[in-house]
C-alpha cells in the first residue's frame, strides 16, 4: 500500500534533476563575481598603498597615484545625490501619498519607468545638450553630476515609492481620523517608517553612480587633470574614466596599475553596499510592527 508507484518515482527523479540543474545555474552566476574580484585582488592589491591613494598620477599616468580621480568621483557622486535625492523623494511622496489615480499619474509612472530604460550614452548626449551647452555650465562637475542625477532619479523614485507603500495604510488612516492632514501624517508617521528603505535605495544608487563612465566623459570628467577641483564649475578626473583612459588610451601603462584602480573602484562600491546592508539591519531592529 505504501509502495512508491512508477509515477511517484519519476516525479522524484525529476525533482532531483531540476534541483541540480538550478543549483548549477546559480553557481554559474557566482563564477564571474569570484573571478573578477579574485583577479582584481591578486593583480591589483600589490599597488594599493597610502601613496597610491593619496598622490597625483605622474609621467603620463604611467606612475604615481589616483588621488584626483578618487576625489573627483566623490565630488561627482555627492553633487549628483544633492540633486537627485530631494527631487526623487519629493516626487515619490507626491506619487504615493497625494496623486489621484488617473491617466496623468499613470503617464508619470510610465515616464519614470522609461527614464530608467534610457541607455547611459543617451543620457550623456542629453547632458551635453542640456547642461553643457544650453545652460552654459560648460564641461564641469555640475553638468556631469546633473546628468548622473537624472540618470539615477528613477532608482531613487522607485526605491522611495516601494518603501512608502510598505507602510501600512492603517497607520495613515489612524492619523487622518485624528485630524492630521496628509502632510502631517507623512511627516510624523509615514516618512520615519520608510526612511530605512529610502536610505538603502540611495546608498545602492551611490554605488551605481560611482561606476558610471559614459554620462560623465562628455560632460565634466577630464582625461588628465592632476589637481583637485575647487568648485562645481571645474572639470575633474574620475575613477571610472581614469580606468578607461589608462587601459585604452595611454601607451606604456604598467599592467598592475589599472588593476589597482579597478580594485579601488570596486572596493568603494562594495563598501557602500556593505554600509547599506548594515544600515538596513540596524534600522530593521528598531522598526517593528
Amino acid at each position: 500500500m505504501f509502495q512508491a508507484s512508477e509515477h511517484n518515482l519519476r516525479s522524484k527523479r525529476r525533482e532531483a534533476l531540476f534541483r541540480t540543474l538550478f543549483a548549477l545555474m546559480t553557481l554559474v552566476l557566482i563564477v564571474p563575481v569570484v573571478v573578477i574580484i579574485g583577479t582584481l585582488v591578486v593583480k591589483g592589491a600589490p599597488v594599493i598603498s597610502f601613496e597610491f591613494l593619496f598622490t597625483d598620477p605622474i609621467n603620463g599616468m604611467t606612475e604615481g597615484g589616483i588621488f584626483p580621480a578618487l576625489i573627483g568621483t566623490v565630488w561627482l557622486v555627492a553633487v549628483a545625490l544633492l540633486v537627485s535625492v530631494p527631487l526623487g523623494v519629493a516626487a515619490a511622496v507626491y506619487l504615493s501619498e497625494f496623486a489621484p489615480d488617473n491617466w496623468f499619474t499613470r503617464l508619470i509612472n510610465l515616464a519614470i519607468i522609461n527614464l530608467a530604460g534610457v541607455p547611459s550614452i543617451v543620457h550623456a548626449l542629453f547632458g551635453v545638450g542640456a547642461f553643457v551647452l544650453f545652460f552654459r555650465f560648460g564641461t564641469s562637475i555640475l553638468a556631469a553630476s546633473l546628468t548622473l542625477a537624472i540618470m539615477t532619479l528613477p532608482v531613487v523614485i522607485v526605491a522611495t515609492l516601494e518603501s512608502l507603500r510598505a507602510v501600512p495604510l492603517a497607520f495613515r488612516e489612524a492619523c487622518w481620523n485624528m485630524g492630521a492632514t496628509r502632510w502631517q501624517t507623512i511627516r510624523l508617521v509615514v516618512l520615519p517608517n520608510a526612511v530605512s528603505g529610502i536610505l538603502t535605495g540611495i546608498i545602492l544608487e551611490v554605488s551605481r553612480t560611482s561606476g558610471e563612465t559614459a554620462p560623465i566623459m562628455f560632460t565634466g570628467a577630464a582625461f588628465f587633470l592632476p589637481y583637485l577641483p575647487e568648485s562645481v564649475f571645474d572639470q575633474t578626473m574620475a575613477l571610472s574614466l581614469h580606468l578607461f583612459v589608462m587601459t585604452t588610451q595611454v601607451p606604456g601603462v604598467p599592467e598592475h596599475l589599472p588593476y589597482g584602480v579597478a580594485l579601488v573602484l570596486i572596493g568603494l562600491v562594495l563598501a557602500m553596499n556593505a554600509l547599506s546592508i548594515a544600515f538596513r539591519v540596524y534600522l530593521r531592529q528598531r522598526k517593528k510592527w
Binding site: A170, F171, E173, A174, C175, N177, L188, V189, P192, N193, K287, K288, W289
Partner: peptide, 13 residues
Amino acid sequence: IGVVFPLPVGLPL
C-alpha cells in the same frame, strides 16, 4: 470624533 478600528493600530511611535 474619536475612531477605533477593528484591528488594533499601535502607531510605531
